[in-house]
Design a protein around this nucleic acid. Structure first.
Lengths: 183, 183
DNA sequence: AACTATACGGAGTGTTCACTCCGCTTGTCG
DNA sequence: CGACAAGCGGAGTGAACACTCCGTATAGTT
């Protein structure tokens, strides 16, 4: 792959993430191309369809989340680490108009990505969750799937609120995650 | 207003709620007209734009929620009533692919409706919430806005899950709403 | 420097969709 | 029943948008 091609590809990904986060996934692809400073033709050579672009954005986000969780997995206080991760993820997605939720709503594009890349995240998170539950501090009656859905739902719940309100909402869910478990 | 016109109007509203709930608000209006058994012309005579139709659907939902809360406002155990309402609302919206969330994402259409009709719901709910907080059983550090956002977020979180999973997710949030308050 | 595979830009194309227009139908009222 | 306003249906219109195509430009190689 030529150097300029690689540069354009990552520019497109970054621009897409920004544009879709700001205006929702309904935003026209021309805008992404313009934001990236490339022509539309270039966009479509790198990502054959809009859906492929969305998927790439989604995968990139999964990748980052997975890395983040991986780097945390050895901690000595898994419950605190897990809730900390939850809070971080919610706070950072709040800025971005619930991009993950919007992507998830898109449906099809996400399934393929979930199967291949999501499973890694799922596995990492699942391990951390189990350890947190065993160590105490996180309720035992939920699985990874519920945890992830809660993460997405909470991200949506906090979007559009100021920092203080966002933290109040977040605390409700975090307390719920700890509930029924006497630390 | 002629009898048939009124009939068509309510058919359109019902069809719109169903179609948009099933396929998201991106569904073409033709489909709504077809589902209602009327022509497109008729749809647009009753609702000047698609946005107006969405707003009408949203208002109808707000209306129903408001009535529901009103009928509950005199209860002797406000905390239980409030959590019961929360659970009901989440469960019923779960079937409908988070219609409220999708509508909220549409933005503009919702603002006007919120101002006029949402305030009634907000007021009713706010009263109930305050009473529940005073009676004990609901944490004192949240306001109506947070409660409503949590409702919407939780609705999204449970969508696509089976009943048992849905209830586990719901319980996390409900426990969170009770947390920090020794009943 | 010359060459060529690789990549680029953006006008053009087909399709989807919200919305309009008008000839026809039907409810309503004297 | 007859008249006519109110309402209906759906072909037609324009705009937005995803995606294609090809002449031009440029990175990498010899």
């Amino acid at each position: 792959m030529r150097a300029d091609a690689q540069r354009n590809r990552s520019r497109l990904l970054a621009a897409a993430e920004e544009v879709f986060a700001a205006k929702g996934i309904g935003a026209p692809v021309d805008e992404v191309a313009r934001a990236a400073g490339v022509g539309i033709g270039t966009l479509f050579r790198h990502f054959a369809t809009k859906e492929a672009l969305l998927e790439a954005v989604y995968v990139a986000r999964l990748q980052r989340l997975t890395d983040q969780v991986s780097s945390l997995s050895g901690a000595q206080d898994p419950a605190a680490v897990l809730t900390g991760f939850f809070a971080d993820a919610v706070r950072s997605s709040g800025t971005k108009m619930a991009l993950a939720a919007a992507l998830a709503e898109a449906g099809i594009a996400v399934d393929a990505a979930n199967a291949s890349y999501g499973s890694a995240l799922r596995q990492e998170l699942g391990a951390l969750l189990t350890r947190a539950q065993q160590a105490g501090g996180i309720r035992g009656d939920i699985a990874v799937g519920e945890f992830i859905s809660l993460l997405a739902g909470t991200s949506q719940a906090v979007s559009g609120h100021d920092d203080a309100t966002r933290d109040r909402i977040l605390n409700v869910v975090l307390d719920g995650l700890r509930a029924g478990d006497t630390r």
